[in-house]
């Protein structure tokens, strides 16, 4: 026991604490970086949606919801067949995302959709010689169809976090810089204050490797549990979108962890060389 306490000098304890803090800075810095390049980045969301089945699924869902509305309104099932244009949906969703990240009010412009609907209704009434037409009922129907379209374009729950994302994007960037500076400062302190440079490098290696392991274990556990695919969301398109985003975030964590581990191994190699040199 006495031997143990003799080994644990104040200097060693301080270095251990610095190493721990360095590891924490690396972990939080990595996580904040991932947040900054994903959730807080508009082009990330656009790219994710473009590369997934989101638009296709969304068009199918809109068509189904409108078809149900048509059933309740006396319209043939064929009325809404091919009605929803993927091009229009894509444009409207992109506008929504742009407004979201620019902090603009999140309103969907349904004028194109409304115009198409009115034209289709007029044609339907004329073709089928429908006489029992109540303007008020048709107006309710059109407004509801418009609302279905608008609600489908809006990405659910985004409105609740818009303020957080818009107001804190700059803060995240500052935090990344601050954490990077702190990490660099700790590395410098470790190297400068340690008589044995190879020991300083060993401390830095420990911080890098433990941070890398932390960032590796977390996503592996989440992927292995399969919990991402088990989130209960009513809409297939929304579910696919969130799964894509979460998968990308976790994959980014794995990539960063691998980078940290590779850098750690490089530092270890340097440490062994420096140690051999100082032994000579």
């Amino acid at each position: 026991m006495k031997k143990l306490f003799k080994k644990l000098s104040l200097k060693k304890v301080l270095y251990a604490v610095l190493t721990f803090i360095l590891a924490l800075c690396l972990i939080f810095g990595s996580l904040i970086t991932i947040l900054r390049i994903t959730f807080f980045n508009g082009s990330f969301l656009s790219d994710t949606l473009n590369s997934s089945q989101y638009y296709n699924d969304l068009c199918v869902e809109i068509a189904e919801n409108l078809s149900d509305l048509g059933d309740a309104s006396g319209l043939d099932k064929s009325f809404f067949e091919g009605f929803v244009s993927e091009v229009l949906v894509r444009d409207d969703v992109q506008s929504y995302i742009t407004d979201f990240y620019e902090g603009n009010p999140l309103k969907v412009n349904t004028s194109n959709f409304d115009e198409s609907l009115q034209n289709a209704l007029k044609k339907y009434i004329k073709t089928n010689h429908i006489k029992n037409v109540n303007d008020e009922s048709l107006e309710y129907f059109s407004a509801k169809a418009s609302r279905i379209y608008s609600n489908s374009i809006k990405i659910k729950y985004f409105s609740a976090v818009q303020d957080i994302i818009v107001n804190n994007t700059g803060l995240l960037t500052s935090l990344i810089v601050v954490l990077a500076l702190i990490s660099a400062a700790i590395c410098v302190i470790l190297i400068v204050t340690n008589a044995w440079k190879h020991k300083a490098l060993r401390y830095i290696y420990t911080a890098l490797s433990s941070a890398g392991l932390f960032l590796l274990i977390l996503p592996i556990c989440v992927f292995a549990s399969g919990v991402i695919g088990h989130i209960a969301i009513m809409s297939r398109s929304l579910s696919d979108m969130y799964i894509s985003i979460l998968s990308t975030v976790l994959s980014d964590m794995i990539v960063i962890s691998i980078v940290l581990i590779v850098v750690a191994v490089a530092v270890w190699v340097i440490h062994t060389r420096v140690r051999k040199k100082s032994a000579v």
């Binding site: 190493t19 721990f20 590891a23 924490l24 972990i27 060993r202 290696y205 420990t206 911080a207 490797s209 433990s210 941070a211 392991l213 932390f214 274990i217 750690a264 270890w268 062994t272």
Partner: peptide
Amino acid sequence: RGLRHFLLTPVLVCLLLFAVI
């Protein structure tokens, strides 16, 4: 000793990080 520093210490520090966070 090398194995301890290379493998064991990072794993222990990683576990400590999990516990603290």
